[in-house]
Amino acid sequence: MTKPFIHVSNLRKVFNPGKANEYLALSDVSLDIEEGELISIVGPSGCGKSTLLMIVAGLLEASGGTLEIGGGAGAFDPHRHVGMVFQQALLLKWRTVLDNVLLPAEFLRLPRREARERARDLLNLVGLEGQETKYPKQLSGGQQQRVAIARSLVHDPRLVLMDEPFGALDALTREKMNLELLRIWEQSGKTILFVTHGISEAVLLGSRIAVMTAGPARLARKIDVDLPYPRRLDMKTHENFGAYTREVYGLLGME
């Protein structure tokens, strides 16, 4: 059996170890993720899901356990192969949409012309064709988040980490963006870790769901979501969807 793309085992994170404000942010998380998978990580605030994401992104050191990324297909460089999307779009207001998408390419000093071409393609992919020269404030919240998604893909990362990317959007826009994300994921073939505290969002998107609980922050269970892709909003009325949702609520103690 080949190694998984991401192998997390017994991962642990303690903030301020040995001090009065010592805080166990992550306790014993094990998770394997295959390349091209869209996996939802769901849990309440303080369950360590963002911490897990930060460790995977190489922005935080784990206190214990192992994290291996790359699997078989060549070395994985966390400074080259990770794209990130946050709850805020974090667009630079003095840059046009196109120049915002190009920011990671500039940091990585990728060839300019190819990057521009790719940025244009990505803006088409996220449904923003013809908006390249607009400024962020001329866009709606949903459109801004589309720009952020295009930006996370511009350097062709192998792994995209999303930390509640639609958490600040209104309910209808959020559902629309869920469908958009599914489409973008299918067309780009990226591995996506999608952190959310929206349970139906987690079920709708993920081929698997990692359910995390707080106090102590740990991984409660991994659930395989056996709903076919491409997924549609009307699947939310499907009885299996309800069953998965109930299972997650149960694990979070919210039945």
Binding site: L59, H79, M84, F86, Q88, L90, P104, E106
Partner: peptide, 27 residues
């Protein structure tokens, strides 16, 4: 400067100087 913006910049290997020039100073 939002901390998340710094995270984002760090995942694409941005140097302190690049962050200053492209994000901090214009901001």
């Amino acid at each position: 400067i939002e901390p998340e913006m710094l995270y984002l910049a760090r995942t694409v290997n941005a140097s302190k100087w690049q962050i200053f020039l492209k994000i901090q100073f214009p901001g």
